[in-house]
Design a binder for these strands. Structure first.
Ligand SMILES: [Mn+2]
Ligand SMILES: [Mn+2]
Ligand SMILES: [Zn+2]
Ligand SMILES: [Zn+2]
Lengths: 163, 163
DNA sequence: AACAATAATGATAATGATTATCATTACCAA
DNA sequence: TTGGTAATGATAATCATTATCATTATTGTT
């Protein structure tokens, strides 16, 4: 089963019924577990771990297994529908790339106290410009094909500062 | 055992004999395992995992245990001597903050093919300027105390592109 | 020097997240 | 229908990292 990355676009966004098409067009099936996992991811602003996704799935579909959640998160990742992050607590966290509840491309602010994660996409103009520049320079200098980046700021949120 | 972060400076750099002082001044002992771990970290440009560090330590000091390596990496991290990274393969990787073999403050270029990691510190001036700016804005907007950041570019290196 | 206090170690077992196996089920195409 | 394959779910296995705990090493003090 080979999955080509990035057939993205506006498709899928605000139109979850069309997820099905994404799967079908690559000869994959749009199963119940997949529908439900995407539903969970589409209805939160949080950055959930596999376990957390599983727990939410479990509430309405106790028959769906944790293994299936892991397996499909990996599938969704390869399809370019979901991204996986690591914020320094012991697990990976997943996020819909084109979710109604999320800014389209964004970076993260991570509280090392309460582990809360804030999406931000203001400053994006400068950021994008700057990143493009560095990417280009790095690509040339090291003959690297840059496809992605991670930018995270760590610190203490208001509450954690006080406490 | 409480360790305050950041007593950094030029100290220690190019002067490994002074690591001892760093420990002593906080009532800690500069033990053989610590000396050896720092030696390993000081003699490489790589970003080693705990296991890899342990293996190098093992060659000359087979009596030093993996547990001790983990424990001391944690200690060194809290002392601000070492930083821990996560590059997407399944483990944490460590790096001396003030190593002879490293640019002082730098960011990373990660090949998702061969997992090789390239340090870069050209563009650092711009990058720092940019980061300061974003940090300030984010700090204000979200009342966040930003203490650290992670900037990583992912892609394929020359070799992995070809293959 | 002998001693008590405690820092640090190392062997081992335990944990927690993720992955591999494999028999079973669901779906599609002929 | 029926055969072939995709996908699932229960279970066991892996791998990195931590927790325990008895032992050893170091330091400051009589
Ligand atoms: Mn996010
Ligand atoms: Mn580095
Ligand atoms: Zn917080
Ligand atoms: Zn490579």
């Amino acid at each position: 089963m080979i999955v080509s990355k990035k057939t993205n676009g506006v498709m899928g966004r605000k139109n979850p019924k069309k997820w099905e098409h994404r799967f079908r067009e690559m000869g994959m099936r749009f199963t119940e577990p997949r529908r439900v996992i995407l539903e969970v991811l589409g209805n939160t602003v949080e950055h959930l771990s596999a376990e957390e996704i599983y727990m939410r799935v479990y509430k309405k579909h106790p028959n769906i297994g944790l293994t299936t959640v892991y397996r499909n998160l990996y599938t969704l990742e390869r399809m370019g529908i979901v991204t996986k992050f690591h914020f320094g607590d012991g697990c990976h966290r997943y996020e819909l790339i084109e979710g109604h509840k999320k800014p389209d491309h964004h970076h993260h602010l991570v509280c090392t106290g309460c582990k809360r994660i804030i999406d931000y996409d203001d400053f994006m103009d400068e950021e994008i410009a700057y990143i493009k520049k560095v990417e280009k320079a790095l690509s040339r200098k090291h003959s690297f094909d840059i496809t992605d980046h991670v930018i995270q700021f760590y610190g203490l949120c208001k509450k954690c500062k006080a406490a």
